[in-house]
């Protein structure tokens, strides 16, 4: 057991934690926007898949990472538009439409991948790790924090931007009001629908980016169902984080940590636990955490409720 808790092990685990948390950060902060405005989107798994595929296909054909990320965001936004059309304009139940999003995302990406990609060989160029002079070469700390690529550091940007937008701009204030007292917003002469569209588009764009992280920021291939349930985990993250972007960032990291730990611990021959027990760890810990923190009533009060005028 001695070699488990070494500095090297910790550094590796922390580095892996952030990398594995990154897609969750994007998707869950996106979902925070959406849910704060009262729109519950359980279809982020499908949106992530669309982002992952759109990004991958674009970079595969054009070679441009920037364009790939743009297309991933656009693909996510397109899914968001569809989701908004049905949940906000048609006012259909959000869970129903979210379920349809998951099916569409999985089916469409797999179908298109199958039709247009026979073998992708070497895959695409992923975002390169940044070399920060001085910092990247630091022992331990360098590996843990300063050898990541721009998409990993982007998670910091997203969380800061999200906090700023939600709490320091009138757009954010109104957006949150839409999730709590839509009628008041309506009476004040602002369009509830428009704000909800805005929130859903931001949410799905970020989910698309989270998906693209998988194909453009971490591994360089697309595989059917590559999101591997991360969209559902992101939903859990949002509740766990009580609809706060900063919370979502840290809870994502916690999930990343569990995930990294289980992969690292499996390789420790001294541990005689079935590896499935380690695999179940993140999920068991989520439940344990929910019991420990006892969910206060922070839920946006109009979450999941379509708004009807009058």
């Amino acid at each position: 057991m001695d070699d488990i808790v070494t500095l090297g092990f910790i550094a590796t685990t922390l580095g892996a934690t952030w990398r594995l948390a990154a897609p969750l950060v994007y998707a869950s902060i996106g979902e925070v926007f959406s849910e704060r405005a009262g729109v519950l989107n359980i279809g982020i798994e499908g949106v992530m898949l669309v982002g992952a595929f759109a990004g991958f296909a674009t970079v595969f054909w054009t070679g441009s990472l920037a364009l790939g990320l743009l297309m991933a965001v656009a693909g996510g936004a397109l899914m968001g538009l569809l989701f908004g059309l049905f949940t906000i304009t048609i006012k259909a139940d959000q869970i129903v439409v979210g379920a349809a999003m998951n099916l569409l995302g999985l089916g469409l990406t797999a179908f298109l991948y199958r039709t247009y990609f026979v073998s992708t060989g070497r895959g695409v160029e992923i975002a390169p790790s940044l070399n920060l002079p001085g910092l990247s070469d630091l022992p331990f700390v360098g590996e843990a924090f300063f050898r990541h690529n721009i998409l990993v550091y982007g998670t910091l940007l997203v969380v800061i931007a999200a906090v700023f937008i939600l709490h320091r701009t009138s757009f954010g204030l109104t957006l949150r009001a839409v999730g709590e007292h839509p009628k008041a917003v309506d009476i004040a002469g602002r369009s509830v629908a428009l704000y909800r569209y805005g929130a859903v588009l931001i949410g799905c764009s970020l989910a698309g980016l989270g998906g693209a992280y998988l194909t453009l920021g971490h591994s360089n291939q697309f595989v059917e169902g590559i999101a591997s349930g991360r969209g559902f985990i992101a939903l859990a993250v949002v509740v766990f984080a009580r609809w706060s972007p900063i919370g979502a960032f840290f809870v994502s990291l916690l999930f990343g940590l569990f995930y990294a730990l289980q992969l690292q611990l499996q390789a420790q021959p001294a541990l005689h636990i079935p590896y499935q027990a380690l695999q179940a760890l993140p999920y068991v810990m989520t439940i344990a955490a929910l019991i420990l923190v006892r969910n206060r009533v922070d839920t946006p009060s109009m979450l999941g409720v379509p708004y009807r005028k009058g």
């Binding site: 439409v97 349809a100 089916g107």
Partner: peptide, 13 residues
């Protein structure tokens, strides 16, 4: 076969 997911999604929508 994955096409079935697309169709199920469209059925719901």
């Amino acid at each position: 076969q994955v096409l079935v997911s697309v169709i199920q999604g469209i059925v719901i929508l």
